[in-house]
Design a protein around this nucleic acid. Structure first.
Lengths: 204, 204, 204, 204
DNA sequence: AATGAATGAGTCTTCATTCAT
DNA sequence: AATGAATGAAGACTCATTCAT
């Protein structure tokens, strides 16, 4: 029970930080507010984290750690590359929907610039893209894919995914994010233009 | 001549701010550094801008103003919806490549959260998406598009576009951004999956 | 045994504090570091000492208590005032050499200024000077001394003594402090004692 | 006049710092108190000094700069080594008496421990001792001195001098420091100079 | 219009001290 | 007696903004 409390505090600080960093932004969130929101004293934060920046990193890694694991698991459970791709998108949206605070910070901090932050952010979006690239590579190997530059494609896919989540967050999570699954999957799988176009161009 | 100088100063401040906001980030950029980089006194900034935040807004709008205009022009010069779409992507990449500083701030600030900033950012990415939506709507109207949710599609397209530029910036603009034009266009027009799949589904 | 342990702890805390206060300085030494170095918990210090300041006082008095006693003893063992003076210097250097940590804190803290510290420091350097003054007074009474202001002379003697030790500490105790005994004794004897003495000794 | 004000501010901050550092001690003196005492805003200190520590250094160097110069000048004006020595002591006491604040900080900080401080303090007490050593060396060369270890002797002399000033400061400068000149001079001359001198003077 | 010295509110962080266990 | 997690007051320093010149 004592142990539980300790764990509680670290978790509570991370949760409070995730919430606040997501709501406003890193610089607009004071350690005082985080402490207050976590229900601990100002100094307590520094028992668990060396600095405010390290707290941000922790928030980030905590979220991504769980996120990536579940994503990988889900993808690996599928056999067909195409199903993997679909699962990737579906699961991604679901996870974001379940952790709106973390989603918000994932999106909003993603493009900050302090040295340390950038490093961590890069590392974690790398993690994300790695999964995507793996799936795309597999698709390509089985001939299910156009002959794409996998790296570029992963990046675009990631961008489309992020944008979708960002829209949802911008609308204050007022609709179900998974409702967008169809659209996103269609976009990624089919492309936005009708196959008519391809037939046309094939006709030329 | 006095007037010219004045204009000069405003421009120089905006240019310096664009450069610095892009290099580091809004909070890590002090007005003192901006003033120094612009070659003016600290107080001078406040003759032209009510606050640091308003300066950011100005930087933003200045960039987007020119950007959007050229984008719209280029798109309108094309007749065919599909060509419009392609032109949109090509021009977009070109404009980013020509203004790396602005590109950087466009990307990095895009997801900050201060009240006013968010407002402006939303307004400007709205502008961007409006153009995209217009083009997509036209495509749809001519049956060149799958029956997409234009709003969502625009958002995804925008995300893929941003991601492409972001990658380039992350690689310190070390390659030509327009080289990615092919990939991006392919991605957007065709989708990443092989047309086999589409033929398959067409066969159904 | 429990009691022994208790005594142990108090001593260990004082020893750790003496070491650390000497190495860095009062303000740069945290109670946490003292506790760690003493191998006790942070709170334990406050079982034995009311405050950090009181710990400093204890360190001080502990050192001076032993120091003064041994000094007095040694001096009293000598019969001749002049021998007492010489013994005072010799013993003083020896004691410092044997307790470099305490020597360091004795010197470095000697001129701090916090209210309580000053009080204690004054009290303890008083103790030191008292012994010196006693010896000098005796010398004067027996006509072995120039007609000096005993108080001032004691102060100067003390200063010269301190400076000698301080030099040694500044050189990181890399040479034997007692090697300076000759120089110091000469300086003091000539400086304070009447030239009669010299004639006397010359007469021998 | 504007310039005068600027200079004024730097000087006022140094003066206020000298006063407060001397009264209490470095750590017990807050930058807020210094600013208040100097009649400037808290931030103003950081226009003139990079940090609180650098301010201490400045206080120190400012005092010692003037001090050393005047000391050297005075010493060089004398022809006879012995007169130089006497002048050194007399002038030293006079300068201290004229700048009680600086004297206090000179004495109290002399044995602090922060890295940078120690460096500066060492550098400056070195300066002091250099002058002393120069004079002593000259005395030795002319046979007016016992065959002393000049370095050690300089250190003792410095210690005796400091102690004298410290006593005065401890008595809150309630008597005239120069009144101690006779005692100090006697102590030093006897302590350092050869007894030949005494015989000489006895012969007169 | 321009300057840049001055301001002072606001922030992160440290650390002596307490207290429930 | 002992622990060590928690506290929260205090302090150095930053920086957007102002204003006398």
């Amino acid at each position: 029970m004592a142990r539980k409390r300790v764990g509680n505090k670290r978790e509570r600080i991370i949760a409070a930080a995730a919430k606040l960093f997501g709501e406003r932004d890193y610089h607009d969130t004071t350690t005082a507010k985080i402490a207050e929101s976590a229900g601990v004293a100002a100094g307590t934060i520094y028992i668990y984290f060396r600095s405010k920046e390290e707290l941000l990193v922790a928030v980030f890694e905590e979220f991504l750690g769980r996120h990536m694991d579940r994503l990988r698991e889900g993808v690996e459970r599928e056999k067909m590359p195409q199903d993997k791709l679909m699962r990737l998108l579906t699961l991604g949206l679901e996870l974001m929907e379940d952790n709106p605070d973390s989603a918000r910070i994932f999106l909003s901090q993603l493009r900050q610039s302090t040295k340390m932050i950038t490093t961590v952010v890069k590392r974690s979006s790398r993690a994300y893209k790695d999964i995507i690239e793996d799936v795309l590579t597999e698709c390509a190997r089985q001939g299910l894919c156009r002959d794409v530059n996998v790296h570029a494609a992963a990046s675009m896919l990631f961008g489309a995914f992020q944008s979708t989540v960002l829209d949802w967050v911008a609308h204050e999570c007022s609709y179900s994010l998974t409702d967008m699954n169809g659209e996103l999957t269609e976009f990624i799988l089919h492309g936005i233009c009708s196959s008519d176009r391809e037939e046309e161009s094939a006709a030329q």
